[in-house]
Design a protein around this nucleic acid. Structure first.
Length: 475
RNA sequence: GGCCUCAUCUUCUAACGGUUAGGAAAUCGGGUUCUCAUCCCGGAAAUCGGAGUUCGAUUCUCCGUGAGGUCACCA
């Protein structure tokens, strides 16, 4: 049995967005599941669209997500090179074969002539087919013209691992360009040659290529290459759920999610379940589980909208699922500047308190600022509070004074603080809605914070007492 | 316009041809000693339309409709 080999073959024309990542992910999962190989190949045959640095950017993105490749442009492999621009001789040889067998010819037309044909076709509400204009006596190909495939139009039926049985009429097969006049091959040609030479077993790609498959099949046949397994992935749609997600429609660079503090395992989980499920009600999957359970047959056939809300929830879920030490390691670059004065242990305690409400790392500063600095006293927190606004200032001061007294005797362990605060409820006969709210506000001056005893314990005695005193004199 | 693909709550989705059409996100209530969150409980919310096959159709077939893709010397 053949070893499963899949590839991800982006062109280095910019950053990667979630759509591309998902294509890579599914190909990676298929390879991993079968103990096969996952290849990275860069399709850099359009020098006009190439963007400097994007190859490195793509690799960085894949590495962040853990989608490591077994063979690729940076690490080589048994089927090198993996950069198409370094394989031009190979394509030339395969092109010569087609010329020799009468299945390729030089395109004699100018751009303008072609455009005329195209406009004419459109005017007649016909699809443009080059083969309707196939020259009778094409010139000998000298490399200065485009080289075209001489197609053999026929009806095709083929199977797709996701979509099932597919077919298309002969009108889908046309004479397409194999090698451009600049000497570079087209995707249509070189991906087939490369997939064959690199022994790719599963061609996994997104839907926009489906209309071209009959042309590819015609070329496979002309080259005497066995068809690989095809798997067509539905689109990742924009938030409106209508159109395929694209850079113009605001698709984000996948590395922006890293910058915002999303976990790579969240992105993997999210993208895997966007268009795939295992039939159960499970939503949260580890990478290991995905490798075990993934199957192309259960990939959805229709496009799926990319829902940032759901991503946010899922990231929170993953954040809650990892250990505090691990989480702390990963948040190193997200702490507010003022936190530098505090020890790692202190920061870790703070992190422990916000772990359950953290959705992405970039919100750490706003969630934790009062642990590192005295926030300005904002009496509106009291006057706008449903319960507290009923009390006059004297009453507020009295309660804070009492809190100050009992807290002075606390060792500030969570247990001791809980006991003391509960006792205070009894001795004052006041509701927690009043007393705890007041103390919480007076010690943090933040609109929200973790539980009172936990917060005070981390803040420590000195800070707590100092802030309460300051609050008393400001009210 | 030709060709091709797709179609379940707002969104992601489940359902050997037999279910009160299930779960999750979001949303709305309620609970968990204070806020925010977590967690728990509950509500509202869908099979695009029409034929056909069948005892029975979300599921199979056909016809509509809608959406998307493609018809490049881009991938």
């Amino acid at each position: 049995m053949k070893i499963t080999r899949t590839r991800f073959a982006p062109s280095p024309t910019g950053f990667m967005h979630v759509g591309g990542v998902r294509t890579a992910l599914f190909a990676w999962l298929v390879a991993k599941q079968a103990n096969g190989k996952f290849l990275l190949r860069l399709e850099d045959t359009d020098k006009n669209r190439e963007v400097a640095g994007s190859a490195e950017h793509i690799m960085e993105s894949l590495r962040w997500l853990g989608l490591e490749w077994d063979e690729g442009p940076d690490i080589g492999g048994s089927h090198a090179p993996y950069l198409q621009s370094e394989r031009l001789d190979i394509y030339k040889q395969w092109a010569e074969k087609l010329i020799a067998s009468g299945r390729a010819y030089a395109d004699p037309y100018t751009k303008e002539e072609l455009e005329t044909f195209r406009v004419e076709a459109q005017k007649n509400k016909q699809p443009f087919l080059y083969r309707n204009h196939r020259p009778e006596n094409p010139p000998v190909w000298d490399g200065s013209q485009a080289l075209r495939f001489k197609s053999d139009p026929k009806v095709y039926h083929w199977e797709d691992a996701v979509l099932g049985d597919l077919s298309a009429g002969a009108e889908a097969v046309d004479d397409f360009i194999l090698i451009k006049s600049d000497g570079y091959p087209t995707y249509n040609f070189c991906h087939i040659v490369d997939d064959e030479l690199m022994e790719i077993t599963h061609v996994i790609r997104s839907q926009e290529f489906i209309a071209s498959v009959p042309r590819f099949l015609n070329l496979y046949d002309a080259l005497g290459i066995d068809w690989p397994i095809f798997a067509t992935l539905p689109y990742v749609m924009g938030a409106d759920g209508k159109k395929k997600l694209g850079k113009r429609d605001g698709a984000k660079d996948i590395l922006d999610y890293r910058k915002d503090g999303y976990l790579p395992e969240t992105m993997i989980n999210f993208l895997a379940t966007l268009g795939w499920n295992d039939g159960s009600e499970q939503e949260i999957f580890s990478v290991k589980e995905l490798i075990e359970k993934f199957s192309l047959a259960r990939v959805q056939r229709s496009g799926a909208a990319f829902d940032e809300q759901r991503l946010l929830w899922m990231n929170g879920s993953h954040i809650r699922g990892i250990s505090l030490d691990d989480l702390f390691d990963r948040t190193k670059n997200y702490w507010p500047e003022q936190s530098n004065q505090k020890s790692a242990d202190y920061k870790k305690s703070v992190l422990g308190l916000i772990q359950e409400r953290l959705k992405y790392f970039a919100e750490i500063p706003e969630l934790t600022n009062f642990f590192f600095e005295d926030l300005p006293i904002n009496l509106e927190l009291i006057t706008s509070n449903k319960q507290l606004k009923k009390l006059d200032n004297q009453q507020l001061k009295t309660y804070l004074q009492k809190a100050l007294e009992v807290l002075t005797d606390s060792d500030f362990s969570v247990n001791n603080l809980s006991d003391i605060l509960n006792n205070l409820l009894e001795t004052t006969g006041e509701k927690p809605g009043i007393l705890f709210s007041l103390i919480r506000i007076a010690t943090t001056w933040a609109p929200a914070s973790p539980g009172l005893a936990d917060t005070l314990s981390v803040l420590g005695k000195e800070t707590t007492l100092r802030r309460i005193s300051a609050s008393i004199s400001s009210i």
